[in-house]
């Protein structure tokens, strides 16, 4: 099947099996390796991209269904000069560890924060359930996001109990 994918604003021709997942095409054909292939079955969220601005798991999206959709990968959300607020908060709060989950985490939580500018801790946690992280234990990521909320604390020096 021949089709054109719109990836990070660029038209990209695709020729091949339309059942292949967007994740495979991004990583193997286009060398856009920001989205990670971790579970391959929808549970972990490491492969999340935005389709027309909405986060979805690219491992379960067949490319054949994506003609005409705006696909935004982690490579397309910012460049190093203009990090998004979510990326900045993650940087400032030093929450990253191995980093494998973060591309998906950034794309999910950027969308969530845009829709819910003043989330509670509990709301953030529920929103994060499809983004599994094996390293961090989440709570410091939540702290970073809470600092962005309109009732957030703003970036603070870490206070130790």
């Amino acid at each position: 099947m021949v089709l054109t994918l719109m990836i990070n604003g660029d038209p990209v021709p695709y020729h091949g099996d339309p059942r292949r997942s967007l994740l495979e095409v991004l990583r193997d054909d286009l060398h856009l390796t920001g989205a990670k292939d971790v579970c391959g079955e929808g549970f972990c969220g490491a492969c999340i991209v935005q389709i027309d601005g909405v986060p979805k798991v690219s491992c379960l999206l067949p490319v054949g269904r994506l003609a005409g959709a705006e696909i935004t990968t982690i490579e397309g959300v910012s460049n190093s000069e203009t990090l998004t607020a979510v990326q900045k908060a993650f940087l400032e709060y030093d929450v990253v560890q191995c980093g494998m989950c973060f591309p998906g985490m950034v794309l999910s939580m950027t969308h969530f924060m845009a829709e819910n500018p003043s989330p509670t801790r509990a709301e953030l946690k529920s929103a994060m359930t499809g983004n599994i992280c094996r390293c961090t234990g989440y709570e410091r990521i939540i702290d970073a996001l809470l600092s962005l909320g309109s009732n957030g604390l703003g970036p603070v020096e870490e206070v130790r109990p």
């Binding site: 929808g42 549970f43 969220g45 979805k56 798991v57 969530f112 929103a127 499809g130």
Partner: peptide, 9 residues
């Protein structure tokens, strides 16, 4: 049910 991303799909 499921996760936010799956609920959208």
């Amino acid at each position: 049910s499921a996760t936010p991303a799956i609920r959208r799909m």
